[in-house]
Nucleic acid binder design. Structure first.
Length: 320
DNA sequence: AATTGTTACAACCGCCAAATT
DNA sequence: CAATTTGGCGGTTGTAACAAT
């Protein structure tokens, strides 16, 4: 036994609405006010429509109701829908709530027929770009801690061993700051979050001791969504007892938003830490800029790369 | 020109929680 | 308060228009 139908299917019209039916429903709704509860089921008989009450409700809400837009989604709306979908999934009514004049049904259709493909296409293009990108042959010099002015004699071997240790690749390197990042991707965690065994270091921190530092800490990092260009950076956090992952997640989301809407604002950024890492101990040299500075930066949408670096220094950021 | 495939989107379906009895 | 009814929601389908073969 299935469930009882909401109305008598045999005596009820289905399919597209005629202009005549629309007019009847619209006239009634405009006269008697919209959707006070308990009205929908009995409404069709009242106004002589051979329709299911639910069908009337849907027709009114999605189509006849005043002040609703159809089609012609703007670029801003596209972005908002994509971002919301990424963060909350297919909660169409909530998404529609953020877009004045749009119905959940319209947005759902729009997503299913166009946006989904548009986004997938974009991701594939980025993936291809990443795959095909050739990193600089010799991205940075490794210095010998005993003799900082000279390059490490076994630079290539050192880099190679580090690559093996991290099972990764150089995801980013900034010529200007000599910041680089090794990361090991584990796509099982989620598309854009990577679990790394090793992370950031600076040129002049490399040496015997810094190798220990690099290999003994665990970090979460994430890739911003579009690169190359390679100067896109990551949020890193030490995975240790007491790590506040919710705070980390907030930063991640924030950075992703910026990367999506104002990607140029991330040019030149290095790594950002949790606040507690800014006042770091000797075990973790303050190689990372502070979170407060990061919070301020996005509000100035005119900053270019060098201004960012200047601002970072101004805010007590580490070595540049 | 005829057929097949694709896209766009209104409308439908069934579940379930809120409201009502 | 339980039982029943209704509205809200997200997934899915039917189909007309359009594109490709």
């Amino acid at each position: 036994m299935g469930r009882a139908p909401c109305c008598d299917k045999a005596n009820v019209k289905r399919g597209p609405w005629s202009p005549d039916e629309d007019a009847k429903l619209k006239a009634y709704m405009e006269k008697n006010g919209a959707g006070t509860r308990g009205n929908w089921i009995s409404l069709p008989q009242k106004i002589g429509l051979k329709r299911c009450g639910k069908s009337c409700r849907l027709r009114w809400l999605n189509y006849l109701r005043p002040n609703i837009k159809h089609g012609g989604f703007t670029e801003e709306e596209d972005k908002l829908i994509c971002n919301l979908y990424k963060s909350i999934g297919s909660r169409w009514s909530i998404i529609a709530g953020k877009l004045p004049g749009r119905t959940d049904n319209d947005i759902k259709n729009y997503w299913n027929t166009r946006l989904k493909k548009k986004l997938l296409g974009k991701q594939h293009r980025e993936q291809d770009a990443r795959r095909n990108y050739t990193w600089p042959q010799k991205p940075f010099a490794v210095q010998d801690s005993a003799n900082p002015s000279q390059a490490h004699p076994n630079e290539q071997e050192f880099l190679a061993s580090l690559m093996v240790q991290t099972k990764g690749e150089i995801f980013s390197y900034d010529q200007e700051t000599n910041y680089g990042l090794f990361a090991t991707s584990k796509s099982s965690i989620s598309n854009e979050i990577f679990y790394n065994t090793d992370v950031s270091f600076t040129r002049d921190k490399l040496g015997e001791n810094s190798v220990n530092m690099l290999t003994s800490s665990n970090y979460y990092s994430f890739l911003t969504s579009s690169y190359p260009p390679m100067t896109r950076y990551y949020c890193g956090v030490d995975i240790a007892p007491g790590t506040n992952f919710q705070e980390f997640e907030k930063i991640r989301v924030e950075l992703e938003e910026i990367d999506y809407n104002f990607p140029q604002q991330l040019d030149g950024l290095e790594n950002f830490s949790m606040p507690e890492m800014v006042n770091s101990s000797s075990a973790y040299p303050p190689m990372i800029s502070n979170y407060e500075a990061f919070q301020e930066i996005p509000h100035d949408f005119s900053l270019d790369k060098s201004s960012y670096i200047a601002l970072r220094q101004e805010h007590g950021s580490s070595k540049v």
